[in-house]
Design a protein around this nucleic acid. Sequence first.
DNA 1: ATGTCTTTGTGAACGCGTGCACAAAGGTGG
DNA 2: CCACCTTTGTGCACGCGTTCACAAAGACAT
Lengths: 258, 258
Amino acid sequence: MATGRTHRPATRSRGIPEATVARLPLYLRALTGLSERSVPTVSSEELAAAAGVNSAKLRKDFSYLGSYGTRGVGYDVEYLVYQISRELGLTQDWPVVIVGIGNLGAALANYGGFASRGFRVAALIDADPAMAGKPVAGMPVQHTDDLEKIIDDNGVSIGVIATPAGAAQQVCDRLVAAGVTSILNFAPTVLSVPDGVDVRKVDLSIELQILAFHEQRKAGEESAAEAAAAQLPPAARAAGEQADRKGPDGDVPAVMPA
Amino acid sequence: MATGRTHRPATRSRGIPEATVARLPLYLRALTGLSERSVPTVSSEELAAAAGVNSAKLRKDFSYLGSYGTRGVGYDVEYLVYQISRELGLTQDWPVVIVGIGNLGAALANYGGFASRGFRVAALIDADPAMAGKPVAGMPVQHTDDLEKIIDDNGVSIGVIATPAGAAQQVCDRLVAAGVTSILNFAPTVLSVPDGVDVRKVDLSIELQILAFHEQRKAGEESAAEAAAAQLPPAARAAGEQADRKGPDGDVPAVMPA
DNA sequence: ATGTCTTTGTGAACGCGTGCACAAAGGTGG
DNA sequence: CCACCTTTGTGCACGCGTTCACAAAGACAT
């Protein structure tokens, strides 16, 4: 069985830390806003505030790109926009295919954010024959059978998977076999890919569950005073009932949520 | 100006590391799959493979929850499903509102993953009067005017923002003022929120840009041999043209991408 | 030209997350 | 009851990321 890691173990591409790369688009967005308002220069403090990060972090991030920036003045907005764009590879055109044109896939196809920054939707692909030919976002949906040909003809190296979970791995394998080396996965599954292929996942359900965890914790903190007085472990009353952890007579049968 | 950080500076909630919390939903998903196939127990090795993580990491993650698991045998699937569900707060019901019923908002409303795990879409809200009353995903869209009342009546503490970027901060402010303390943001903006409010963002555009970076790097590595022979810095030829970094005569005017 | 003032760029310390490797624990068979 | 085998739980070390704090660098006024 292929191990298939998901996030790449920090290959340290050209010395730019992964965490920095993940923030560059944020800076770029803030800078684009300033550029549109014809702001000539910006300080690390201002830009950091706009991007929602620490200013020292921002400066260190930029230091990995080189010494753009003038002491006592700040950064030239236009110049920085270009440098970051170039570093991220946005000065060239990236054809993208979206596989799985359901609710989500169609929404993605209609999303304006694609075209705005070097990404071009080259094709929409779906397994349903009834979808074939139907226009979505001004573009005819094509059938999965032609997937390999589409990838090849358009030189696609980035694929977006918006299929149901059950089909995702199969689609992924075909994309990779056809030459795609970067995948953005919206399906709620862990994808296995060979080395050299990057996968990033966007998982609504996971994000909500993380929020629920913090939400529950916050709700628990409120009544923490009484619980502490009653000498209970702070997690016990959060769930409402069932104060038993694995006690001396553990292995209580599990009660599953719906 | 409010600083408004986005990701919370690791408050270390009840001793469970943030990184672990982020993986719990992954384990839960894998475990649910096993549970449906009536697998009684699972080893850390197997489960780790299914979740796409290191087995030592998984064991350490579980150790934060307590000592569930039997040496020499593994973990009881049902029991673990319940424990993780409880830890994540999924044993209770979380009413959620979705604000901004455009392409994306509608797709989210139709997404099945919501209801499956304790999350219930309590209301769909949009600012467009023309949308009001129209059914989306079997539910009438309500107008933004009633936002506060909806939040209050349903006891909503989690809000999903799927509006255009321009409206996001305003919507966010109203949600927070109405009592929402967790926000999932799909709008491409940095949201400012007061302390105590959690924000997680899902940003398609950022994910694509990160992929583009790695894609460009991969494309560059291929022809790295020639470039190295020509004594060029390895980033120069990746962009194709424009080999000039900020040299002794820096400050070249920027060429912006479309 | 020189001093002052602002802002960058970075050295260094710290904390979190990860993974190795192993001892402890429990089940199982004889 | 004992020995063996499997698998957990964790101590430890290492590396990445974050942040502080400050020296170097440049602009600008005098």
